[in-house]
Write a protein that binds this DNA or RNA. Structure first.
Lengths: 155, 155
DNA sequence: TATTGTTATACTCTATAACTATA
DNA sequence: TATAGTTATAGAGTATAACAATA
């Protein structure tokens, strides 16, 4: 036998499947961009999660807390806490639905809209900058692949 | 469905740039897979961050805390806390470097190796399952694009 | 009974800054 | 002085489960 590599020293080898490699890159790319976005938002005492609520509620005004939770892939208790902090900061409003009094309809306050107007352009420019290493066709292919990965995500 | 509110009442329109769309998908895809992985790891009282430490230290045994921090894109204080919890759980060891006594060399304990051996296969199969909606060429393209996005990420 | 949202609890993650030990 | 790691602090995010109000 001429096994040159001591196998039993390390039973687990780094996975080289393309799916796993893609996941590792996906996670790394996500964190890299997310950290950068968080840094920029920090100036306004806004977390990335809160920014996402801000943008989502703005672009989908009148949505319910449950809808928001499923859109952001978090629990309803989590959304409730997020909204507590954001209403305290006068960024978001809850309004009881007149037809179903269990439901809260969400919308931004003036302060929330103003803050979004300030932060969104910076946010977008950071994303564009970090994505600019990709050519338009690559960007298109990336989008198509990720679309398959989570079809229900809308912008 | 519900929101019959005219969008154009708002000055800010949803961004349709391909870079932004790609980011939205990227974030959603990441969270979707991450939640699923966390769920599976929860059974072993392991967080995703801790699992990543486990795998990274295993595949790169002897690495320092600084190296680990930069690899996982977190602060050194954060790594320190993570390792505190993981050494308390007897998963990881710190060993002072004999040549530079400021440095800690990291390695897995028997318990850490065993836990990785149990959790890694499940982890990988979840990733494969969720990535299986992509064809091999798509997977290749995704990997290539993400590689450009964060060139320094290794396996 | 089922659903929406709230509350209570208990973690982990994360960053920053000041600190210690070593180089 | 500079670097590796630690500690202290602080806050946010997250989930779960039990609960209230409404349907």
């Amino acid at each position: 036998m001429h096994s040159q590599i001591p196998q039993n020293a390390c039973p687990l080898t780094p996975p080289d499947d393309p799916e796993i490699q893609a996941w590792v890159r996906l996670a790394h790319g996500y964190h890299q961009i997310a950290r950068r976005l968080e840094q920029a938002l920090d100036e306004h005492s806004l977390s990335l999660a809160q920014f996402e609520v801000l943008a989502r509620v703005h672009f989908d005004s009148g949505m319910t807390q449950s809808e928001l939770a499923s859109r952001l892939l978090v629990s309803k208790g989590n959304i409730c806490g997020l909204l507590d902090r954001m209403t305290a900061a006068d960024l978001v409003q809850r309004q009881t639905d007149s037809e179903d009094r269990r439901v809260n309809r969400l919308s931004l306050t003036k302060g929330g809209k103003d803050l979004l107007a300030i932060t969104l352009p910076v946010h977008l420019s950071i994303i564009k900058e970090m994505m600019s290493v990709l050519s338009p066709p690559e960007l298109g292919a990336l989008h198509t692949s990720l679309e398959k990965l989570s079809p229900e995500a809308a912008c």
